Amino acid sequence: ELVRAFVNLRLKPNKDLLQDLINKANGLNRANYTSASLKAVDTEVEKANVVLNNPEATKEEVEAAVSELTKALAGLEANPVETVKPGDTTVSVKTGDTTNMMYSLGGLAVASIIFYGNKKRKNK
């Protein structure tokens, strides 16, 4: 009996990566993605949960679930960002500053050198 039990003994696959992927999928901000891509992720999460909760799941089943869920998460499509709504007549104001400060600092350094040189010359 002991030999038969030993032969039938199987190693249980590690499901940590699968659990992490399910947690990642459940933690997504659903407003940022298209409903079609979220549907694909939801389908794979359901399948992955079945494998995760199956104590008899094989290593191959776990790896397949990880692969499919990873593929679904990689296939997420972001919602298009609508910057101007139809009929909106307000003008957008650019709020970022793109001025390069090196020119200002360089000018200040040159002016300081000239000022210092003129002051030193007047003192002689």
Rank of each mutant, 00 (worst) to 15 (best):
L73K: 04
E77T: 11
P13A: 08
N53E: 15
T70A: 12
T98W: 12
A48E: 01
V45Y: 02
P55C: 08
K85F: 03
K12V: 04
L73E: 06
I113V: 15
L52G: 00
S104D: 14
A31G: 08
T70N: 09
R10Q: 10
V93M: 12
A31N: 12
A74S: 08
N118R: 11
V93R: 11
T99M: 01
L108W: 03
L21W: 00
Q19D: 09
L73H: 09
E82T: 13
R4V: 14
V3T: 13
A65W: 01
A109V: 13
P13R: 04
P13K: 03
A40T: 11
G117A: 15
F115S: 14
V84T: 14
N14K: 09
T98G: 04
N123H: 06
R121I: 06
I22L: 08
Y33L: 04
L76E: 03
M102R: 15
A31I: 08
S112K: 05
V66Y: 03
V7P: 02
R10D: 07
E1M: 15
V84S: 07
A111E: 11
G106W: 00
L73R: 02
N8W: 07
V93I: 11
T70I: 08
N32E: 12
V81S: 14
V41G: 02
N14G: 06
V62W: 00
N8R: 09
K119G: 00
T98M: 03
E82P: 03
N54S: 10
D16M: 15
S67T: 13
A31H: 14
V110N: 06
N123G: 05
